[in-house]
Structure formats: structure tokens, C-alpha cells
């Protein structure tokens, strides 16, 4: 591979490993919060999201190497991760019962 190709390729490798990792963090967190909200047991929610998250990690990894536009990859993964993580963080307090109600 020549040097002109090297930088985009490094960017892609980083996106596949780390950006997808962050994205899956978002998927698992938001998934656990959402499932908890509809009454699924915490550990069941966690386990199912972890199993799903791992398979999605592999799928997105492949996607990163299949799509042409690097910008699109970083935008989808970065924004997706940020949105899902903040949504999970903002929704979580709604599920915590107040002292009196517990």
C-alpha cells in the first residue's frame, strides 16, 4: 500500500476498533435502560444487550471496511455513541425510585 492510502486506512482501523466500541457502549447502555423501563430484570437486560452488542460489533466492524466515505463512518459512529450514551444517562434517573417510594 502506498503512503497516500496509509492515513485513511489508519483512520478506518481506529474507527473500526474504537469508534465502534464507543457506539456499542451506547447501544448496550441505552438498551439496558430501555429494557429496564419496560420491566425487564436488570441482569436479563444486561446479558441480552451484551450478547447482541458483541454480534453488532462484528457487523459494524465489517461495515466500516465496506463503506466508502470515512466522514460518514465517523459521523454515524461518533454521533450515535454520543446520542445513545447521553440518552441512557438522562433516562436513568427516571428509573431510580425515590427514597419514599422504595
Amino acid at each position: 500500500m502506498n503512503s497516500a492510502l496509509a492515513l485513511p486506512m489508519i483512520s478506518r482501523v481506529f474507527a473500526a476498533i474504537f469508534a465502534v466500541y464507543a457506539f456499542i457502549w451506547g447501544v448496550v447502555s441505552l438498551g439496558v435502560v430501555s429494557l429496564s423501563a419496560i420491566g425487564v430484570d436488570f441482569h436479563s437486560a444486561e446479558q441480552s444487550m451484551l450478547m447482541f452488542g458483541l454480534l453488532l460489533y462484528v457487523a459494524l466492524f465489517i461495515w466500516v471496511f465496506a463503506v466508502k466515505s470515512l466522514l460518514r463512518i465517523w459521523l454515524v459512529l461518533g454521533l450515535g455513541a454520543a446520542l445513545m450514551l447521553s440518552a441512557a444517562w438522562l433516562l436513568q434517573p427516571l428509573l431510580l425510585c425515590q427514597e419514599a417510594a422504595c
Binding site: W25, L54, A88
Partner: peptide, 29 residues
């Protein structure tokens, strides 16, 4: 797959000890 899964909850995606610790702890109690 199962090898990675064994460590996922504790090492790779420890949501219940970090981001979702409040929810997890409430569940524990």
C-alpha cells in the same frame, strides 16, 4: 464468541459498574 462473552460484562462493557451503576445498585438492594 463465548470466550469474549465471559469477560464482556466485567471488562469490555462494564456498564453496570460505571454508567449504569445507580440502576445496578438499586437492583442489587
Amino acid at each position: 464468541f463465548t470466550g469474549v462473552l465471559i469477560f464482556t460484562g466485567f471488562y469490555y462493557f462494564p456498564v453496570s459498574q460505571t454508567l449504569l451503576k445507580p440502576l445496578h445498585d438499586q437492583h442489587e438492594v
